[in-house]
């Protein structure tokens, strides 16, 4: 499974989903990638920090959404945990440097929005991001054991994958069953997110292809569009949270 997803991700990521070949995960670390510079929190310290406190972290880029208006939203991880950097003030030039594995140092405020623990920033604070020397690529972690469990939140923001989940009829309270395996947020010209509901056991989650991470040109977007109700798939992505788990899918394929 890991091989499949690694290969799939390699084809699908665009700043996370680009079609360019992607480096394979870094082999067994020879150095301590969780080590922090002076004045930087470990993940445990970050995790323990109260909301609305100032935090400084170092991490490695997993992917990022499209740069816009001097901001970029970044998914990042270190060997101990993961971070969601919401609307990080950033020049377009620096955003181009945020390739997968790039080490960064970020100073902002620990925040929570609809259950998503994230780092937010003062508007226009162009000092929040420092691009550092270093490179480490996180390998996706199997999170099957947490499906349907409240403990899934311990995996929040990490690069994870789930195996053997079933594609549901995409149903909304408004419309009832639609007979479709997925739903466009904007069906007219596909310029927004793509939703899919996946079930394993008694639990169904709604995941999405986040448009600004993987747009309609990416293979993952097209792969979700090709899903059928009842398909059993493996799915990989960044474990975002929106009133519950809301994986930002970066790869999907038939279950192995």
């Amino acid at each position: 499974m890991k091989k499949f997803l690694t290969a799939a991700v390699a084809m699908m990521m665009l700043a996370g989903c680009s079609n360019t070949p992607k480096p394979t995960p870094t082999p067994e670390p020879e150095q301590d990638y969780a080590a922090k510079s002076e004045g930087v929190m470990t993940f445990a310290e970050y995790d323990a920090a109260e909301l609305d406190t100032k935090v400084t972290i170092e991490a490695y880029v997993l992917g990022h959404q499209s740069w816009w208006n001097d901001k970029v939203t970044v998914y990042a991880q270190d060997p101990d945990g993961a971070y969601f950097l919401y609307e990080l003030p950033c020049s377009e030039e620096d955003a181009a440097k945020l390739v997968e594995g790039q080490k960064i140092k970020v100073t902002g405020y620990k925040s929570e929005w609809a259950g998503e623990v994230e780092i937010t920033f003062d508007e226009g604070d162009m000092t929040a991001l420092e691009i550092e020397e270093g490179n480490w690529i996180a390998e996706a972690v199997n999170a099957d054991e947490f499906w349907g469990s409240p403990d899934l939140i311990t995996m929040q923001n990490r690069k994870v994958y789930f195996t053997g989940v079933t594609v549901e009829d995409y149903t909304t309270d408004e419309d009832g069953a639609t007979g479709a395996a997925f739903a466009y947020k904007n069906p007219t010209d596909k310029t927004d997110d793509l939703y899919v509901q996946l079930t394993k056991g008694d639990t169904t989650y709604e995941f999405c292809v986040e448009y600004y991470l993987c747009n309609e040109e990416t293979d993952v977007y097209k792969a979700v569009e090709a899903l059928n109700i009842g398909d059993v798939v493996d799915v990989e992505g960044f474990l975002y949270w929106y009133n519950g788990p809301n994986l930002h899918i970066t790869a999907v394929g038939a279950a192995e």
Binding site: W68, N69, K185, N186, T188, D189, T191, D192
Partner: peptide, 12 residues
């Protein structure tokens, strides 16, 4: 038609 869900994006 091109649909947006955000006035800010249209503006930009």
């Amino acid at each position: 038609m091109r649909l947006y869900t955000d006035y800010g994006r249209i503006y930009n």
